[in-house]
């Protein structure tokens, strides 16, 4: 039963997403695509933040590095995007590993500030290295993804591709989380010293978590680039890192389902709350604060609490 959790997650995503892809109108499909792409990044972020407890405020830089690598390879060098995707993931993961060694000696707010600085630096470099990145004009003309004659060039088709990738990512993440590797990450999050005392190489676990999170971020970035077919610096500034963080917290950190739910919810929320106008972001901040204070385990945690409460009542009535 237990080992089917990952399969269950994948099937749920495919079924629900597939159903929505048939009934939703084009604009909603676009938002759903954005949700799917964000969800992959947030599942990645969950490795670093939710499992290993690394407070990163620079996740968007990894997304951006993936997106820009694909954009540059597929435009300036004329690579097939299919080839550029794995290379972009590899480049980003290597970068994460490289900066991880010095960076992950830092903890708590020091790590938060360092990763924030990293994200800001990324934006500055991408904005100013005009010969490579096009500066604030960004890079346009990114080729579409296609399989033979079948191009993923409308929202519905792209969504199918995105859903398959998201389902694979979610299944992988669920499997990992329930494995020794996931437990090792959570052990490091909960108590580094005690983790060492069970033979865990804390540095290696942290770097693995960061690299995994960067790899997922890069995949999300390449999908972003091939979906919008345009990248610009402001898509990956640190405000986006905070949005990824918020998605995970609203959904429920430490849980794959939380990552997916949070990503979808925070993508659609501005739509549903359009009547708030300019006040949306102020509301968003208040909502985040309220969730931190009253619902620190997010929506997934709330569901678990309700279930427990329900179970409790049942137990009381049967006894």
């Amino acid at each position: 039963m237990r080992r089917y959790h990952s399969l269950l997650a994948a099937v749920a995503i495919l079924a629900l997403g597939g159903l929505l892809s048939l009934v939703l109108a084009d604009y909603r499909l676009r938002l759903l695509n954005v949700s799917v792409i964000s969800a992959i990044a947030v599942i990645g972020f969950n490795f670093a933040f939710g499992l290993a407890g690394l407070i990163s405020l620079g996740h968007a830089a990894f997304v951006g590095l993936g997106a820009y690598t694909l954009a540059i390879l597929s435009t300036a060098f004329g690579w097939s995007p299919w080839l550029a995707i794995p290379v972009a993931i590899l480049v980003t993961t290597l970068f994460a590993g490289l900066i991880g060694y010095p960076l992950l000696r830092l903890r708590g707010h020091y790590l938060a500030l360092a990763t924030l600085g990293l994200n800001v630096s990324f934006t500055i470099v991408v904005t100013n290295w005009i010969s490579l990145t096009g500066g604030t004009n960004g890079i346009s003309g990114i080729p579409e993804l296609r399989l033979g004659a079948f191009a993923f060039n409308d929202e519905r088709r792209f969504l199918w591709l995105g859903l398959v990738l998201l389902a694979l990512c979610a299944a992988f993440a669920v499997t990992l989380q329930r494995s020794r590797y996931g437990r090792a990450m959570m052990a490091v999050r909960d108590d580094e010293t005690a983790a060492r005392m069970t033979g865990i190489d804390v540095t290696r676990v942290k770097i693995t978590a960061l690299c995994l999170s960067a790899a997922f971020a890069a995949l999300s970035g390449t999908l972003f680039a091939t979906h919008v077919r345009f990248v610009a610096p402001e898509d990956f500034n640190y405000a986006h890192s905070i949005i990824y963080l918020a998605m995970l917290i609203v959904g429920g950190e430490g849980a794959v389902a939380g990552a997916v739910i949070g990503a979808a919810l925070l993508t659609f929320l501005p739509e549903w709350l359009r009547f708030l106008g300019d006040a949306y972001l102020a509301f968003f901040g208040l909502m985040l604060l309220a969730i931190l204070i009253f619902l620190p385990t997010g929506l997934v945690g709330l569901a678990a609490q309700l279930r427990r409460l329900g179970g409790h009542r049942e137990a009381e009535t049967t006894s």
Binding site: R183, M186, A187, D190, A194, G199, I200, G254
Partner: peptide, 29 residues
């Protein structure tokens, strides 16, 4: 630890968000 040393702490240090079984499995791993 991998060479065969083990230790418990004066005030007890468990992985707070793992279950009892998962705590022990972390050691067995």
């Amino acid at each position: 630890i991998r060479a065969g040393l083990g230790r418990t702490f004066q005030h007890g240090r468990l992985f707070a968000r793992l279950s009892v079984l998962e705590n022990v499995m972390t050691g067995a791993a």
